[in-house]
Structure formats: C-alpha cells, structure tokens
Design a protein around this nucleic acid. Structure first.
Lengths: 149, 149
DNA sequence: AGTGAAACGACCGTAGA
DNA sequence: TCTACGGTCGTTTCACT
C-alpha cells in the first residue's frame, strides 16, 4: 500500500476528469512548476499507481459480447486468478468475498466465442468449481473520478 | 449503435495503450495529418464514444472499500438503474442477464459507509428485491486495450 | 523534490481543396 | 473529411538548488 500526498491526489483527480489535461494547466492550478507535475506523473505511472487510457463501451461500438463471470473456487484463489488473467479476452479480474470468489470481466466477439471461452478455458482451470455468466445487456454508467465528487 | 471505420478504431487502439500519445504521433503512424486525428478524436469524444481518463486502483492507494453489488429487480430494470447511477459512490452500472439484473460497482470510505449505502440507499430503491455484496479483496487485472491484443 | 530557461515539438484556429 | 500553415503553448533536457 502506498501513501499519496495531497499533490499526487490532486494530479490524479485532474487526470480522472480529462487524461489529456496539459501538465502546465495542472501546475498552474496547484501552484507548482510544469516539471514538478511531469516528474510526479512519470513516477506514479512507473509505479503502476496510475495509467492514462482511452475507455469506451465495446457494445456501443457494436464490437463484441461482454459479460461478468462469477467464479467459485475450491482451494487457493490466487492460482485461479493467475490462470484467468492471462486470457486475452479477460479485461478485469478481482478477488472478492461473497457469493463468488472471483469476478472476471470478459469481452468476446460472438456468443460462440463466449461459450468456448467459458466451457473450454475458464471451467477447465484447476480449482474452478462454479461459473455464473452475467451477460451485459446495457452499460449505464462508467466513472473514473471517484476521489473527486 | 455506431459503425466506426478503420481509422477511428486505430485511434482508439493507440489511446487505449497510452491516452497521452500525441496526435501527431498517431497521425504519422496512420499516414494522416495531425489535424485529421485531432478532429476525429474531438468528434469521438463529443459523441461520448471515447473518454481519456486516469485510472487507478483505489484500494492500492489505501483509500476506500470497494464492492460489486449484484441486484435483483422486480418489474422494470431501467428505473432502478437510473436511481442507482445518480449515487456518487457508484462508479459502474450495467444491466445484465443472469443471476442478477444489475451489477453496480461502488467505492466507499469505510465499512460503515458501505453498510449505510447498501441498507439505506440501494435497498430502499423501489423495485430492488435482492442485493448481494461482493466485497473486493484484491484487484488483479485491469485492461482497457480490448480491441488490440 | 523542485525551479528556470532555451530548443523543440505539439496543438489549434483558420483557410482552402 | 482532410490538408496546410502560423502563432501559441506544452514538453524536454539540462544545469542548478
């Protein structure tokens, strides 16, 4: 775990609103030099604490089928998480406490692709005891500015 | 639904890798002018098809408690989705087919905050018949470059 | 960690095919 | 929708604190 100071938090907050905000603009807002902001951004990025990326809704673009797979695991969860997260269709993996041990978001090109992924890849992983597919019908909200409000 | 041509898809793919990639660099790669890329980016953004943002792992920063709430709904799902997505703690809402009708990701400051949110806000929404909280223990993978591979 | 300055490159408006 | 161009602004590097 990492402790971030106020400057780092504010840089993150600005970039959560618009990831292309010039460092100079952030610098002006925070009363620091451009270089200081860029230096901090580079470090945050290097440490894997932040990434600036384009996000879209694949379904809205007519691309693919999407689902969240709830997985029940017997035995240790980590090895299953490791095995799942190397699959290219998998965009999101989180270990959870509750009805499932693992939540896995997947993006597929078709129903057949999805079926193959679940039946022949995910369900055959050692330790997977149960899978529930929650097919995405419509994405309603997607926000990245949680610290801001 | 929107049909994107190849240029748009490639712009998105580049920005999925690094959202701060200069338009000029993308232009060079695609053999177009910088202005063309900027113009297309602006339009994609305006249409809400793409957003460039900073993403982090709140838990890794020691910030908050996170969970996915699986919600069962009686009657129409859309009004419930609307009511849920205005809550500031809610970062993600998707209508699904499967064990739940709605998946809702929430970021809270503490267990008490989470409890209050679920008991006093979400469960009191008209039409909510069931909620399962899947508390996040550890985020393992988070990718935004699905079209790329 | 942060500053400042100079060279370079990116961005953005406007005009035009 | 795209290109071209010029002025403005952002980024990079380096020497310094």
């Amino acid at each position: 775990m990492v402790e971030l100071d106020d400057v780092a938090k504010q840089i993150i907050a600005e970039l959560q609103k618009d990831g292309r905000t010039p460092f100079a603009a952030i610098a002006k807002k925070l009363g620091l030099s451009e270089g200081a902001i860029r230096q901090r951004y580079s470090k945050l990025k290097e440490l894997g604490l932040i990434q600036v990326v384009a996000v879209t809704d694949p379904m809205q673009l007519g691309f693919e089928r999407q689902a969240m797979i709830g997985i029940g695991v017997t035995g240790r969860i980590e090895p299953v998480a490791d095995a799942v997260q190397v699959l290219p269709e998998v965009t999101y993996v989180v270990i959870t406490a509750g009805p499932y041990d693992l939540l896995v978001e997947v993006v597929c090109e078709s129903d057949e692709h999805m079926l193959d992924l679940i039946s022949n890849k995910i369900r055959r992983i050692e330790g997977v005891s149960q899978t529930d597919a929650l097919m995405y019908l419509q994405l309603r909200k997607q926000t990245y500015s949680w610290g801001v409000r």
